[in-house]
Each structure stands twice: as structure tokens, then as C-alpha cells.
């Protein structure tokens, strides 16, 4: 159990690392090219992994065509956070991305299953909104030394 907890926490660290690196690439190439490199490099890596792990036989039979839309959202998602990361810092980006993700999840569940959010979820959304407001308060004058432009 402890091993899996560390693994899941480590996964968050890996997500943060990816964002930091893509953010740096976007300072040189711009956000869209950064998104392109992220996806093509990940694609090559996963191609190798599929050969190693032998996942090809699972093929995509029966999946509806719109299930493939994820990649298109992903292209914009990576471009957008890469652009803001060097400007806001990793922590604020993490908090704001999580906020957007969590609030959307509540709305999407409501839309997909037609079940209104529970009281606990409603309270959760309110807390996230307050937390987002706090990230605006936390000013960071030290950031100004960073932009060379």
C-alpha cells in the first residue's frame, strides 16, 4: 500500500516535471511548437513501450470515433499551460489547472449522468474557488527578474 501511495505521489511529480520542461521549451520555440514536440516525443516513446509491453493486439475495435477527440484537446492544453508556466510559476499553474479540472469534472458528471452534485461536492467547489482567489493574492515580486524581453 505504501508503495502505491509513493507511486501515485511520484506520478504527480512526473506531471509537474513534464510541465516545467514544456514551459521552458515554449520560452524558446513558443507554445504551439512546444506542444508539438511534447506530443511527437511522447508518441515515439509510447510506440516503443507498446512494442515492449505488447499492447498492439488490444487494437481500437468498437471505440466510437469521437473517443479520439482527446488528442485535440491535449494539443491546446499543453500549449496553454506551457505559455503561462514561466510567467506564473509551477505552483500557481498546478493549483489553477487542478481547479479547472475539478470544477469541470463536477459539471461533466452532472451533464453526463444528470445527477446534481452532492453537498460535499458543492462545498468542494466553493473551497476550490476560494483557493483560486488566494492564488491572486499571493503576489510574487521576485518573478520580475526572469523575463529577459
Amino acid at each position: 500500500m505504501a508503495l502505491y501511495i509513493i507511486l501515485a505521489l511520484l506520478n504527480g511529480v512526473v506531471v509537474g516535471t513534464t510541465r516545467a520542461i514544456n514551459g521552458q521549451l515554449s520560452t524558446v520555440l513558443g507554445p504551439f511548437k512546444a506542444s508539438f514536440w511534447n506530443h511527437i516525443v511522447g508518441f515515439v516513446f509510447l510506440t516503443l513501450m507498446l512494442f515492449v509491453l505488447g499492447g498492439w493486439k488490444s487494437g481500437a475495435s468498437g471505440a466510437p470515433l469521437y473517443a479520439y477527440l482527446g488528442g485535440f484537446f491535449g494539443a491546446f492544453y499543453v500549449a496553454m499551460y506551457s505559455y503561462v508556466l514561466p510567467r506564473l510559476g509551477g505552483m500557481k499553474v498546478a493549483l489553477l489547472v487542478i481547479s479547472g479540472q475539478m470544477i469541470s469534472a463536477v459539471l461533466m458528471d452532472y451533464h453526463n449522468q444528470d445527477v446534481p452534485p452532492t453537498a460535499a461536492r458543492f462545498l468542494g467547489v466553493v473551497m476550490v474557488l476560494f483557493g483560486m482567489q488566494m492564488t491572486r493574492r499571493a503576489r510574487s515580486p521576485e518573478m520580475k527578474a526572469i523575463h529577459d524581453d
Partner: peptide, 9 residues
């Protein structure tokens, strides 16, 4: 940053 979270979802 917030919008990118929506796209991630």
C-alpha cells in the same frame, strides 16, 4: 491556466 485545466478534464 484555469482554461487549460478545463481542456485537461
Amino acid at each position: 491556466a484555469f482554461t487549460s485545466g478545463i481542456l485537461l478534464a
